[in-house]
Amino acid sequence: MLTSSFVAFLGISVLVIVTPGPDTTMTIRGVMLGGRHGGIATAAGVALGQIIWALATAAGLVAVLLASEPVFQAVKLLGAAYLVYLGARMLWSAWRPTGPGETAVMIGVRPSPLVLFRQGLVSDLGNPKMAVFFASILPQFASAGHGMFSELALLGVVFSSLTFLWLCLYAVALARLGQFLGRPRIKRSFETIMGGLLMALGLRLAVEQRG
């Protein structure tokens, strides 16, 4: 039987997960570059990153990260730079001039699911806001004492699993529009929007103050 505390945790988790952010944007990018499988691979990388953050929280490593301002800022800036880099690559792919005989398909780089998985993982690990979230939320729903580590880890796995399911649904739904989104003009416009959004998210992360 679900406890009221766990139900409250699920409610907060769902609210956070469905709110669009870097993870959602990365998944959409994965679909644009690798279709349904690319989106799911990106979502899996994001989910693994969240599990790592959760385990780090349970082990007390996140507390060390949050206590060290230089380390926190370094992680934040590296994560921000990575988002800006991916966004810039997407813009370049969308607007790169085509040579004689080239088509949009020929110049577009279609990364493997493994590459997209890695990018989703690195993107999530480079977002210290996940550390702040897990460190501030998870302990509120775990019992203090000997079993706290396992409870924190379990809550993190639940959160990451819900994230993975949501992003997979997002990826599958978006992939169904593949024929429409594959039209050269639509694809270029969509990639421009997503590239610009990734860069904006990266810049916002870089200048954002700790909450």
Rank of each mutant, 00 (worst) to 15 (best):
L114H: 05
L55T: 14
I12V: 15
A144P: 04
L167N: 13
S93G: 11
Q119H: 13
R188M: 11
I193Y: 11
T24I: 02
L152W: 05
F134Q: 01
L152S: 06
S160W: 02
A173G: 13
L65W: 05
L125M: 13
L198S: 05
L114A: 14
F134A: 07
R176S: 10
H37R: 15
R210K: 11
I51C: 12
A56I: 10
T19V: 13
A200Y: 10
A175I: 05
Q73W: 08
Q119K: 04
F159L: 08
E102Q: 15
V157I: 15
I12Y: 14
S189I: 14
A153M: 09
T24S: 11
L77H: 08
V207P: 00
L201Y: 08
M148K: 10
L167P: 05
A94T: 08
T3G: 15
V207W: 08
P128W: 04
I52E: 02
G30W: 06
L181T: 15
V105P: 00
A153K: 05
Q50P: 02
H37W: 09
G120T: 09
V115R: 14
C168S: 15
G156A: 06
F190Y: 13
S161I: 09
P128I: 10
V14T: 13
G101W: 10
G38T: 09
R204E: 12
S143G: 01
L65P: 08
E69G: 00
L77C: 02
R183F: 02
F134R: 01
F6Y: 13
A58W: 11
S150G: 02
L155M: 10
G120L: 06
E191W: 00
A173E: 03
P113Q: 08
R204W: 04
E191Q: 14
A47C: 04
A173H: 03
L154Y: 04
G49L: 10
S13Q: 09
L181Q: 10
